[in-house]
Design a binder for these strands. Structure first.
Length: 636
RNA sequence: GCGGGUAUAGCUUAGUGGUAAAGCUCCAGUCUUCCAAACUGGCUAUGAGGGUUCGAUUCCCUCUACCCGCUCCA
């Protein structure tokens, strides 16, 4: 019976990642840097495989998606147009009693009575000071105690200093160490008794180290629609502090404010910014997509959960451009509605944004299944109206059951024409696509039909809660559409590569109980990666390393395989140790060259090797000439 | 950023105000036969910076990183 305490699964995974060279802490020899992680030799291979499977599934296997590889630093105007410079700045405020943190702009606005206090004194200080006070009120003494630079400027210092001179040093000392002249307020909704405000205020001063505090200087005031108080207990929040998630840099050596630029917080905006160039250079017609894999940077408030939320991370994003539903209506007569029984296997001309959105959810789900992430480990979260940004029509998160909780791997949003329109407006360059098919379709419409569409669009627009346009803009938009011009709408599947790597690491991690030759139980770790994404596909060993003929043969097998597969050669330690090493690296196949391979037991075994399978340890005898034919289909 | 916890070798742990211990891993060697075998030898550590002290890995302070919660999202 071992008494080793249970180590949490996540810690074991982190430990294995370091031990085997999947993931290291960045800059570790200098103490590390918060929110940054490096991929070691096996991690780099794993990540590359994931990247390659995505790239292949998203663009090479398709005719309607092309790739892009844009810079990390782009014109700063891109981030103003996209809204990131403004909206990526989250104001945060903390509850002064519970320390709970709030997005200051998300705090529920409240009305009621504000109870304010000038300060408080602990019971011990009050009892010590009261008999000694010469005509001064204890509350007046307390109020002038704590002061900062701003208060000094406001003349508080004079009052404080005068008081100090006036009072007996013994009284002053008794009060100073046991009291706080710090203002604090509590908001009470109508109908609540003042005692509940006092209770919260007492908690606040207790939190600052005062025992059994007496409050001083209570005043009340009515307040309407304030976001400055914690809705749960009414306690005052700290002043909102902005947290801007954009990383800044400077382009040019002078590093002046004019040279300010940003590291991209997402790869998507480059796709929008290059939309016209791609259209003009590829013969692609809407519907089509542009995808990109690359680094992105966010100055996260709290990087957490190993690589899950990093400040530098890699995204795999697709922007799939589609016709507006009104164009589909003109071309096909109607837009097909999504239903549970809809066939999502092959895109159809009469699909509107909703079908395309569902289609991409299905495509992405199939992708995950293809690398071993099946329905049992994934989950979906369909964002409700309240979660959605005003420009988004729908968004679903694909979630993975991580050891630390079920968290997002990928978001698939239907974003309308928001992004391209934003860049069109900001840059002054039209981002419209000319669609002859749409032009021809509308050419068959009469004036009445057109007027009806304009009226319908205007009515829909007027009914919007947020982001409604002037009616004449809607009419303008319709007129452009009738001529075949529109800003494409977009479906955006956006996945985190590092999150995917972490997910497959967590999923692969398996502990197997083994009993060794001496009967002792031990736990060994096997990384059960899907063979398509395993960092190394095959490892080759000579059974014994001190026999030159075995080594030479094993090396020749290794040379044969490594041209086609990520292969490893290992002759260190015993054969069992080598298998165990490869199990921890997640190598699905091992090949061992023995004396039979050299023909020692007859010609029928000549040039055959042992092929050992990672997941069940089973072995089979395979001809060297058959190895590639056996392995390649399993790993690609 | 706030609150709580942690920091000794590649990993898992031990220990001490006075030379830092072990197992596993790793490296080299012996071994003709397939799942961390055995044997021999070897490398490697007190997160960083201050302070107290004759002397600090140990006591104190600051910083950093990691883990949990708040928060956030790819």
């Amino acid at each position: 019976m071992s008494q080793t305490k249970e180590i949490p699964l996540m810690e074991k995974i982190v430990s294995l990642c370091k031990r085997r060279g999947f993931i290291f802490q960045s800059s570790e020899i200098y103490g590390g840097i918060n929110g940054f992680w490096d991929y070691g030799p096996l991690g780099a291979e794993l990540k590359r495989n994931l990247r390659d499977t995505w790239w292949r599934a998203m663009t090479r296997d398709r005719e309607d998606v092309v790739g892009l590889d844009a810079t990390i630093i782009m014109h700063p105007a891109i981030w103003k147009a996209s809204g990131h410079v403004d909206t990526f700045s989250d104001p945060m405020a903390d509850c002064m009693v519970t320390k709970k943190r709030f997005r200051a702009d998300h705090v529920e606005s409240q009305s009621g009575t504000v109870y304010s206090y000038l300060g408080a004194i602990a019971k011990e200080g009050r009892e010590a000071a009261e008999p000694l006070l010469a005509g001064e009120k204890l509350g007046d003494v307390v109020r002038h105690l704590d002061f900062d630079q701003q208060k000094l400027n406001e003349g508080f210092y004079v009052a404080h200093d005068a008081l100090k001179k006036k009072l007996e040093p013994a009284v002053y000392d008794a009060v100073e160490s046991k009291a706080h002249g710090v203002r604090f307020s509590v908001l009470l909704p109508p109908g609540k008794p003042p005692e509940s405000a006092r209770k919260v205020a007492v908690q606040f001063y207790e939190g600052r180290g005062l025992k059994e505090p007496t409050l001083f200087g209570e005043t009340t005031a009515k307040i309407e629609n304030s976001r400055a108080f914690n809705p749960e207990n009414g306690a005052q929040l700290t002043e909102p502090k902005p947290f801007n998630l954009m990383f800044h840099t400077f382009v040019g050596a002078t590093a002046s404010d004019d040279d300010k630029a940003y590291l991209r917080p997402e790869t998507a905006q480059a796709i929008f910014a290059q939309f016209k160039n791609v259209v003009d250079s590829t013969r692609q017609k809407v519907p089509f997509g542009i995808c990109q894999i690359g680094k992105a940077f966010r100055n996260e408030v709290t990087p957490r959960n190993f690589t899950f939320r990093s400040r530098e991370f890699e995204q795999m994003e697709l922007e799939f451009f589609i016709k507006p539903d009104e164009a589909i209506e003109a071309v096909c007569g109607s837009v097909v509605q999504w239903s549970e029984s809809a066939d999502l296997s092959t895109p159809q001309p009469n699909w509107g944004w909703e079908m395309w959105h569902r289609y991409w959810v299905a495509q992405r789900t199939a992708y995950y299944a293809g690398i071993g992430l099946g329905a049992d480990v994934l989950d979906y979260y369909w964002q409700g109206k309240a979660d959605l940004a005003h420009y988004a029509r729908a968004c679903v998160d694909i979630l993975f059951k991580f050891p630390f909780g079920t968290e997002e791997l990928e978001g698939i949003a239907a974003r309308g024409d928001f992004d391209l329109t934003a860049h069109q407006n900001a840059s002054g360059k039209p981002q419209e696509f000319f669609d002859d098919e749409v032009k021809q379709a509308f050419a068959k419409w009469n004036d009445e039909q057109r007027a009806a569409l304009v009226a319908r669009k205007q009515a829909e627009n007027a009914a919007k809660e947020k982001g409604a346009l002037p009616a004449e803009k809607v009419a303008e938009w319709c007129e452009r559409l009738f001529k075949g011009f529109y800003v494409p709408h977009v479906i955006e599947p956006s996945a985190g590569l590092d999150r995917l790597a972490l997910a497959v690491l967590a999923l692969a991690y398996t502990e197997v109980e083994k009993t060794d030759a001496k009967g002792a139980k031990e736990t060994v770790t096997v990384m059960r990666f899907h063979p398509r994404i395993a960092p190394k596909k095959v490892a080759v060993f000579p059974l014994l390393k001190n026999k030159p003929e075995l080594v030479a043969k094993a090396r020749s097998v290794y040379d044969l395989l490594k041209k086609h597969l990520a292969a490893d050669y290992d002759e260190g330690g015993s054969i069992g140790k080598r298998y165990a090493r490869q199990d921890e690296a997640g190598t699905p196949f091992c090949v061992t060259v023995d004396f039979d391979t050299l023909g020692e037991r007859g010609p029928e075994l000549l040039d055959t090797v042992t092929l050992r399978h990672r997941d069940d340890g089973s072995q089979e005898r395979v001809k060297i000439s058959d190895l590639l034919g056996r392995l390649l289909p399993l790993v690609s």
